[in-house]
Write a protein that binds this DNA or RNA. Structure first.
Length: 281
DNA sequence: ACAAATACCTGTAAGC
DNA sequence: TGCTTACAGGTATTTG
């Protein structure tokens, strides 16, 4: 499932192929994909050059010359796929951005239709991750996980009795982590996912911030995680390889890579968490 | 104010 | 073989 590392991988791919290219036409066939506004609104982007790309948490931002930003969220099953124009489009293709200059088309494919695209105003300037264009639609998000620090964790976790993991996947607290990376970050930081969020000592908050950065950066280097359903693909349809480096996520009963103890699975409400009972406290 | 539950979806896999 | 059921999970919304 696309979380921060997967979205960042796709962002870099998109910039590499479509950066500076002119958008010629937009085709929207999935109404639910553009549910925040009328489907025809995206056609107004035709003629614009892709000026920069950005990302905040799991939101991908495509900024155009005139300052408008196309916001893309892949949610569960969304994919952005590059293709030559004219080929047969895969099932569940809900929107297609047609570029000139031989760049071909950019397809939004999403079987479960949880994903969405919408047009927002006003772009940031720099091309890069975690740009802060100040979009009203994204104002509910906490700081991007790549730049969060211990002080911020301290502030948002203070006084909370909810499990640490629940806060790590809460995009209002910190933006970018989901089920996979919250578990991996907790393991790397040596913290139980079911620790009451407000119980972390200063040194633990420091470890949490450090592990958040290192785990997510490692996952970006590995081009993201493709799970057994192979739902996550990069722009060119290739699988990620960071799933090979997961220490605890989905590894219930298998030995912890650090100590050899069996990885445990704990139910936390409707969701679950994987963790090592000896390495995490 | 916070925490937990639920709705939204469909492809896949497990069970019968 | 074919049917039914459970499960996956990010976010918005509702309920407690």
């Amino acid at each position: 499932m696309p979380e921060l590392p997967e979205v960042e991988t796709v962002r870099r791919d998109v910039w590499g192929r479509y950066g500076g290219q002119t958008l010629h036409d937009v085709t929207v066939t999935g109404r639910r994909t553009v549910r925040r506004h009328a489907p025809g609104l995206l056609s107004g982007l035709a003629g614009q050059r892709l000026a920069s790309t950005g990302r905040h948490g799991k939101y991908l931002l495509l900024a155009w010359e005139d300052g408008r930003v196309l916001v893309v969220h892949l949610r569960m099953s969304g994919q952005l796929l590059a293709a030559a124009p004219g080929g047969r489009r895969p099932a569940h293709t809900h929107a297609v951005l047609g570029f000139g200059g031989g760049a071909g088309e950019l397809r939004f494919v999403d079987p479960r239709t949880f994903g969405e695209m919408f047009l927002a105003g006003r772009a940031g300037r720099a091309d890069g991750p975690a740009s802060e264009p100040g979009l009203a639609e994204l104002s509910h998000l906490g700081p991007d996980a790549l730049v969060v620090d211990a002080a911020h964790f301290g502030a948002v976790l203070a006084g909370r009795r909810a499990p640490l993991k629940s806060l790590l996947v809460d995009q209002r607290a910190v933006a970018g982590m989901g089920n996979i990376y919250a578990d991996e970050v907790c393991f790397d930081a040596g913290l139980r996912p079911d620790r009451p969020a407000g119980s972390l000592a200063p040194a633990e908050l420091e470890r949490l911030a450090r592990s958040t950065h290192s785990v997510l950066e490692g996952a970006i280097a590995g081009r993201g995680s493709s799970l057994r359903d192979q739902q996550y693909r990069d722009l060119y349809g290739n699988l990620g390889r960071y799933q090979l480096e997961h220490k605890v996520y989905g590894r219930s009963g298998m030995p912890c890579p650090s100590c050899g103890q069996a990885v445990q699975r704990v139910e936390m409400g409707a969701r679950r968490a994987f963790w090592c009972p000896t390495c995490q406290r």
